[in-house]
C-alpha cells in the first residue's frame, strides 16, 4: 500500500526538478528509483520518456554531458 515515503513519477515532479537545476537522464532516474516508486525499470523509462516529450525541456551540455532544464 502507498505510504507518504513513496515517490511518485509525475510530470509535476519532473518539472520541479528541471526548474531547480539542469539534470542528465541518469540524474532524473536517480530521483525516481524503482525501489522508491514501485514501478519496473521498463515502466520508469517509458513514463519518463513520455513526460520529457510533453515537457520538451531545453538541452545544454555541461562537462560534455547533455542536461535537460526548464525555465519558469
Amino acid at each position: 500500500t502507498p505510504s507518504s515515503s513513496d515517490v511518485l513519477l509525475t510530470e509535476d515532479a519532473v518539472r520541479r526538478y528541471l526548474i531547480r537545476k539542469p539534470m542528465t537522464t541518469k540524474d532524473l532516474l536517480k530521483k525516481f528509483q524503482t525501489k522508491r516508486t514501485g514501478l519496473s525499470s521498463e515502466q520508469t523509462v517509458n513514463v519518463l520518456a513520455q513526460i520529457l516529450k510533453r515537457l520538451n525541456p531545453e538541452r545544454k551540455n555541461i562537462n560534455d554531458k547533455m542536461h535537460f532544464y526548464l525555465t519558469e
Binding site: T24, T25, V45, L48, N56
Partner: peptide, 20 residues
C-alpha cells in the same frame, strides 16, 4: 546497480532521440 542505471539511461535517451 550502476549498470542497470546505465542501461535505463541509455534506453531513455534512445526513446528521446527519436523525438528530439
Amino acid at each position: 546497480s550502476n549498470s542497470e542505471a546505465d542501461e535505463m539511461a541509455a534506453a531513455l535517451e534512445a526513446e528521446l532521440n527519436d523525438f528530439m
